[in-house]
C-alpha cells in the first residue's frame, strides 16, 4: 500500500512538501484564524486542529501496522515485520501526543489534568495494549519467533482496541465535547474556514507521520543488517522457551 512512498527517499518528494505546506497553513491559521464563540469551549476550540488529527493519525498507523502484521503471517519476511513494528511505534507516539494535547486542553477547560471520563481512560488502556506489544517483542530473542507472535498479538488486540476507543465511550455519558449535550465538533458547529484548517491539519499530520515512519523503517533496516553481520546467531538452545 505504502510501497511507492518508501521508494522516494528524497526529502523533496511531493507528499513531503505537501505535508510541510499543509502543516504550516494549519499552524498559522490555527492560531490566527477566526473561530466561533461556543459556550465552555471558547478559544480552546483551536485544540481541535491539533488534538483530533492525532487520534485519526494514530488509528490509521495502527491499522496499517495490523495490515503488515497480516502480510507478515502470510509471507514471513523481515521487511513486513519491520514496517508493522515501525507503524505501531508511530501510532503509539501519536496516541501519547493525543493524550498530552487532550490533558492540556482539559486543564484549561475542566480545570484538571485527568478526569474519570470514559474517553480518557479508554485511551490510556488502549496505549497499554501497545506497551504490552513492545514488551512481548523484547521478551523473545529469536527474531522470527518474536515477529510471529508479536504479529499475532497485534492482530488479536486491534478489534478490542477499536471497540474500546470508538464504540464503548459512545455507550456512556461523557464530558468530552460532542458527548452528553456538550457543544461538540460536529459539522454544524464548524464554519467553512475551520473545516479547511481542520482537514489540512489531518492530512498534514498523517503525511508527517508516514514520513517519520519511513525514516524509522530505514533506521531499523540498517540495524537489522548490522545485527546480521555482527551479532552471534541465536542458537536453538538459547531461544528454547517452552
Amino acid at each position: 500500500m505504502f510501497q511507492p512512498l518508501f521508494r522516494h527517499s528524497s526529502p523533496f518528494a511531493w507528499w513531503k512538501l505537501l505535508s510541510f505546506v499543509l502543516l504550516l497553513y494549519a499552524c498559522v491559521m490555527g492560531f490566527l484564524g477566526n473561530v466561533p464563540r461556543l459556550a465552555i469551549l471558547n478559544e480552546t476550540i483551536r485544540n481541535l486542529y491539533f488534538h483530533v488529527p492525532m487520534w485519526f493519525s494514530m488509528t490509521l498507523f495502527l491499522f496499517v501496522s495490523v495490515l503488515y502484521s497480516i502480510a507478515y503471517l502470510r509471507n514471513p519476511s523481515l521487511r513486513n515485520d519491520t514496517i508493522s513494528y515501525s507503524f505501531a511505534v508511530s501510532g503509539m507516539w501519536f496516541g501519547i501526543l493525543g493524550i498530552l494535547t487532550g490533558m492540556l486542553w482539559a486543564k484549561f477547560t475542566w480545570g484538571t489534568w485527568w478526569t474519570k471520563d470514559p474517553k480518557l481512560n479508554a485511551a490510556a488502556i488502549g496505549l497499554l495494549m501497545y506497551v504490552a506489544y513492545m514488551i512481548l517483542r523484547n521478551a523473545v530473542e529469536d527474531l522470527d519467533k518474536s515477529a510471529r507472535i508479536a504479529s499475532i498479538y497485534n492482530i488479536f488486540a486491534f478489534p478490542i482496541f477499536i471497540a474500546l476507543i470508538y464504540i464503548m465511550p459512545r455507550l456512556t455519558d461523557s464530558l468530552h465535547p460532542g458527548n452528553g449535550g456538550n457543544p461538540g465538533f460536529n459539522t454544524y458547529d464548524r464554519d467553512r474556514e475551520m473545516n479547511l484548517i481542520f482537514y489540512s491539519s489531518i492530512i498534514g499530520f498523517m503525511l508527517l507521520g508516514v514520513w517519520m515512519t519511513t525514516l524509522y523503517i530505514r533506521l531499523q533496516e540498517w540495524k537489522n543488517k548490522k545485527d546480521l553481520y555482527t551479532k552471534e546467531p541465536v542458537t536453538h538452545e538459547s531461544s528454547l522457551g517452552n
Binding site: 504490552a132 512481548l136 521478551a139 523473545v140 488479536f156 488486540a157 478490542i160 522457551g241
Partner: peptide, 26 residues
C-alpha cells in the same frame, strides 16, 4: 489465545498477565 502466545516465551506467567490485562480490562 493469549495463553498460547505466552506459552511460547520464557517468562510465560509474567507475560500472561501483561498481555491479557489490556485486552481483559475493556
Amino acid at each position: 489465545l493469549i495463553a498460547g502466545i505466552a506459552a511460547q516465551t520464557k517468562h510465560s506467567m509474567t507475560l500472561m498477565a501483561i498481555l491479557s490485562f489490556p485486552i481483559v480490562i475493556p
